[in-house]
Computed example of a mutant assay.
Amino acid sequence: MRDSLEALLDQLADTLTLLGHEAAIAMQRATAALVDCRLRLAEQVISGDTDIDDLRAQADEFATQALALQQPVATDLRAVVAAIHVASDFERMGGLAKHVATSARRRYPDRVVPESVQPLFRSMGEVSVDLARKAAEVVRTRDVQLAEAIDRGDDEMDRLHRELFAVLMDPGFGGDVQAAVDLTLLGRFYERYADHAVAVSRRVVYVVTGSRPGPLAV
């Protein structure tokens, strides 16, 4: 029974790692679609969201089997319960990347992001992708130090988000109300994406240590 449980946990970790990498790829493509006005990339992200949903369903199935058939305890039980939440976090990250891509497709051939704030959104995309990849690695390795680094890395996203808000509030901002609304929503998508990556890292810390390092994203 122990061997069966370990096999299920390995399959679960592999699926979650892949899910995290897919969420990173989705945001990388979505950001390029948004900033560079690339319709094909936007459509790839939108259509590919079903693959992320399928991976989440697969992870849930492995977790259900582990709970129902193997009756895990202690660290193994924490790992299975946390995995269910991690799968949800990664799926939501994929959904947020889809929102970014949908915004790009909706405005095509016009650009959603004015030239003045394109560097900000490129930076938010880079930070997001880096956090997602690190979160996937944390799931694979259970590296608590890397998990804590992700938690700290979210500060950069918060800084970029504040910078975007300052630009939108500046009287010199040349966009209209619709542009301001679009950019505000897009900034929020990136911020929430990073929050879910942090949530993944904190759930892994909980699995390893048995204690929660702080509030989790919902």
Rank of each mutant, 00 (worst) to 15 (best):
M1L: 12
M1I: 04
M1W: 13
D3A: 15
H21Y: 14
A23G: 05
I25F: 04
A26F: 02
A33S: 10
D36A: 10
L41R: 02
Q44I: 09
S47I: 10
T50Q: 13
T50P: 04
D51Q: 15
I52V: 07
Q58L: 14
L69S: 02
P72I: 03
L77T: 06
A79E: 11
V81F: 06
A83P: 02
I84V: 10
V86S: 06
S88K: 15
G95P: 06
L96D: 11
H99R: 08
V100K: 11
T102N: 05
S103E: 08
R107G: 01
Y108L: 08
R111F: 10
V113M: 05
E115K: 11
V117H: 06
F121L: 11
R122W: 11
M124F: 01
M124G: 05
G125S: 09
S128V: 02
V129P: 02
V129N: 04
D130Y: 09
L131V: 00
K134I: 00
A135P: 11
A136F: 01
R142C: 07
V144L: 10
V144P: 00
E148F: 05
E156L: 11
M157S: 03
D158Q: 09
H161C: 05
R162N: 12
A166Y: 04
G174E: 07
G175E: 06
D176L: 06
D176E: 08
A179H: 14
A180M: 14
G187V: 03
R192S: 03
Y193S: 10
Y193H: 07
A194H: 01
V198I: 05
V198F: 00
R203G: 02
V205Q: 15
Y206H: 13
V207A: 06
G210S: 06
G210W: 14
S211A: 14
R212E: 13
L216C: 08
